[in-house]
């Protein structure tokens, strides 16, 4: 059977590309002007044009939360945001929350609770948690779980993420017991004792 399948673009019009124009973004308290066309997402603007690669791309389609940044204090997915329309807003990325040698309380809590493994979802988780705290709506474990569900973690660090967020949310006054670690010490080897 021979049938032809043509992988064809939807628009039949001749290809055309809108030229780049100057766009000014306020990121982590500083204005940056870059040359981009309207088709550049806020995520790509940060990563590819401003070299702020702390914000991650896990899907580019709003399905994972790795690209979470704060805009005027609210968490959003930067992959579905067109950079041009975010001019004049205060954009905060993971780099703006704290630095490697000067971690924010949330960043420190993530380290303390081992709330990550590969670290790729982590900046998004932390920005999201910061957004959650800014919202001031969540207090309980169930609430935090639900409201941290916009951030996938393929490594499965969820219980530790919960502990870290709860700690900072409650200024260190809440310890979440969502999984105990017990170590049973070494016993003699059973190697040859085939009872």
């Amino acid at each position: 059977m021979s049938q032809t399948f043509i992988q064809e673009p939807l628009d039949k019009a001749a290809p055309h590309v809108v030229p780049a124009q100057a766009v000014t973004l306020n990121v982590n308290g500083e204005d940056h002007t870059i040359q981009i066309a309207p088709w550049t997402s806020l995520l790509d603007a940060l990563r590819e044009y401003l070299n702020l690669t702390g914000t991650k791309k896990g899907c580019d389609h709003g399905q994972c939360g790795a690209c979470t940044v704060l805009v005027d204090g609210k968490r959003i997915n930067s992959c579905l945001a067109l950079a041009t329309v975010y001019q004049g807003k205060k954009i905060q990325t993971i780099e703006g929350l704290g630095a490697e040698d000067n971690l924010s309380p949330l960043q420190q809590a993530f380290v303390d609770h081992d709330a990550f493994q590969c670290g790729y979802c982590t900046p998004g988780q932390i920005c999201s948690a910061q957004g959650l705290i800014n919202e001031g709506r969540c207090k309980t474990e169930d609430e935090v779980r639900e409201h941290m569900s916009g951030n996938l973690c393929r490594c499965g660090a969820y219980t530790n993420i919960l502990s870290a967020v709860m700690e900072v949310l409650h200024d260190g006054n809440v310890v979440v017991d969502n999984g105990v670690l017990i170590t049973i010490p070494v016993a003699p080897t059973k190697a040859s004792s085939a009872e």
Binding site: G62, G65, T68, K74, R75, I76, N77, L80, A81, S128, G131, L132, E135, H147, S149, G150, N151
Partner: peptide
């Protein structure tokens, strides 16, 4: 529906 991030936008 969706997530806090999506609902914010």
């Amino acid at each position: 529906g969706a997530t806090p991030q999506l609902r914010n936008v």
